[in-house]
């Protein structure tokens, strides 16, 4: 790999776009592939297959060739509502697991840069924040405030947009009340059942990092669940 190509790859990663590195294993030449952009002429005859691999987010050697495709797609977006103590541990787990985190909390004293250095913090009410961020269905919501006026609008938004994972912190009782409120707002049982509540898999721990671990474990298992 040429250093020039490596530099280009590092820059592409910073740009937050999906791309692929294409390598000819026979001569060591390589290039960057980006959907819809002109491809290096040395690789043009493999363009159709490169696109196929890219669309499937697949890495590998294209059958019958010496062309290796390595795709770089964007991480899954995880929205945490509530810049609480558990969120601080979630952030550190999510970084290693390569999720892209945003924290939404209208309470400025919680969601401060000091408490969450380097994290995308949105000091707005969930509805307003989501309208600005425009998440797609490959997104996850972790609602942690257990304050209905903050959590509920976020949960409603995630249900409407069919997020692949929706979880809400709180006891069984808190969750029952939450479900009742959602029902009164016109949501069906089937929609409400999509919410993991109480959030997380059963690990038994009560400390903030343990709860964070149980939440992130559930999130990962939902990512890889066969559908």
């Amino acid at each position: 790999m040429k250093k020039k190509l490596l530099d280009a790859v590092i820059n592409k990663k910073k740009e937050n776009v999906a791309f692929a590195i294409i390598t000819n294993l026979e001569n060591g030449e390589g290039c960057i592939f980006e959907k819809g952009k002109p491809l290096d002429k040395n690789f043009i005859k493999f363009e159709k297959n490169i696109n196929l691999y890219f669309d499937k987010k697949k890495n590998g050697i294209i059958d019958g060739t010496n062309i290796f495709v390595e795709t770089y797609f964007l991480p899954i977006k995880v929205f945490i509502v509530g810049a609480v103590h558990i969120a601080q541990y979630l952030v550190s787990f999510a970084n290693t697991l390569n999720f892209e985190i945003s924290i939404i909390d209208p309470r400025g004293y919680f969601a401060s840069e000091k408490r969450f250095p380097g994290i995308n913090i949105i000091n707005k009410w969930p509805k307003e924040a989501f309208e600005e961020l425009k998440p797609d269905k490959d997104s996850a919501l972790i609602a942690l405030t257990h304050d209905p006026k903050i959590d509920d609008p976020a949960l409603q938004y995630a249900i409407d947009k069919k997020f692949f994972y929706i979880g809400a912190l709180g006891s069984k009782k808190t969750h029952e009340n939450r479900c009742d409120r959602l029902k009164k707002s016109g949501y069906t049982d089937e929609q409400i059942k999509k919410i993991f509540g109480p959030i997380g898999i059963k690990l038994g721990g009560k400390a903030a990092p343990e709860i964070a671990l149980s939440i992130i474990s559930q999130l990962v298992s939902e990512v890889y669940k066969k559908t």
Binding site: K13, P75, N98, D138, Y224
Partner: peptide, 12 residues
């Protein structure tokens, strides 16, 4: 679904 698994080796 898949998550991107960039272990940041190229950055290193």
């Amino acid at each position: 679904m898949k998550n991107s698994f960039d272990e940041k080796i190229l950055d290193e």
